[in-house]
Simulated assay, not measured.
Amino acid sequence: MKSNHFYAMLSRMKYINRWGLMRNTREENLSEHSLEVAFIAHALGVINNEIFGGTINAERLAILAMYHDVTEIITGDMPTPVKYYSPVIRNAYKEVEHVAKDEILTGLPLNLRKVYEPLLLETSKEEELWAYVKAADKISAYIKCIEEINTGNLDFSKAKESTYQAILKLDLKEANYFLEEYIPAYSLTLDESKNEEEDNN
């Protein structure tokens, strides 16, 4: 019997929790994180096209973002301080990611693998698009920090600041625009959001 386990493996993303070294008031799993990154990556593409007159494929950004952490189904979520602790660890982790990618792709017939392989790890062919996915990933992490701090969890204070600086360091005008225009709303309550919406009408 064929072992077509690729899509079944994807469904396991909901069992992989993020932020393993941090105290969380609400756990975040890989599945919901990937959807949020897809929303944000798509938004960055739309901002590029509609605000800055670019021609980026926003839909492709959304798809790359959906799959950007799929290898973590096998590797688990490696905390950033550990992943970047030293070049040796980072390079070793990259090798593990490649092995995980190959293992996940074995769950597809050969004629489908070519479609999914460029989605699971960054490629030089789509280097520009992956830069936007990376920005979206960091913005998602920044939003998580905001949400945790809003509940009184100060464990995320340093992570919030370092993540913000990491986003600025990317020097991506679309990411900076998103921070300025849309991030403030993440600190509003639902009632405050409704009132602001009414004021704008």
Rank of each mutant, 00 (worst) to 15 (best):
T123R: 07
P81K: 04
M13Y: 03
G76P: 00
I139G: 08
A175T: 10
A136Y: 02
I56D: 06
R60M: 12
A62G: 12
A65F: 04
S34H: 05
A43P: 02
L120M: 14
L108T: 04
D155C: 05
Y116W: 08
I89S: 04
L61K: 00
G107F: 01
L168V: 15
T80I: 14
V82C: 01
P81A: 02
K94T: 08
R113A: 09
A185D: 11
K2M: 12
E197R: 12
E72F: 06
N176I: 08
E59Q: 13
I167Q: 04
R60A: 13
R12V: 01
D69V: 10
E181G: 01
I74C: 03
Q165E: 13
M78E: 12
A100F: 05
T80P: 01
L129E: 13
D137C: 02
V70W: 03
G54M: 02
E192V: 09
G45L: 02
V46I: 14
S11T: 12
K14N: 13
P109I: 05
A41R: 07
A62Y: 04
K158D: 11
E103V: 14
Y15V: 07
L120H: 00
S140D: 15
E59F: 05
R23S: 09
E97K: 09
L168E: 11
T123S: 13
C145F: 01
L61V: 01
A175Q: 08
E28N: 12
M9S: 15
E128A: 11
T106R: 14
Y85R: 14
H5D: 11
I56H: 02
L30T: 08
A131H: 09
L179F: 02
Y182S: 09
S193T: 07
V88Q: 10
N111D: 12
E174D: 02
Y132S: 10
A135L: 04
N29Y: 08
F178Y: 15
M13P: 06
L119N: 06
T25K: 09
T151L: 13
R90V: 03
N29C: 12
A141P: 00
A141H: 06
N4M: 14
E103G: 02
Y15K: 13
W19F: 15
I74M: 11
Q165K: 14
G53I: 00
P118Q: 02
S86D: 12
I89N: 03
E180C: 07
T55F: 06
A43G: 06
A166K: 12
L179C: 01
N176L: 07
Y164G: 10
E196A: 15
E97L: 09
G20F: 00
T55E: 13
S34W: 06
M78I: 15
E32T: 15
E103K: 11
W19P: 00
N153A: 05
N150D: 15
K2I: 11
V133K: 06
S162V: 13
I89W: 03
E36A: 07
P87V: 10
D102H: 07
A92L: 08
K160H: 14
L105G: 04
A65G: 06
I167C: 03
T189R: 09
A135R: 05
I73E: 00
N49F: 05
R12W: 01
G152R: 10
S3Q: 10
M13W: 03
N4P: 03
R113G: 05
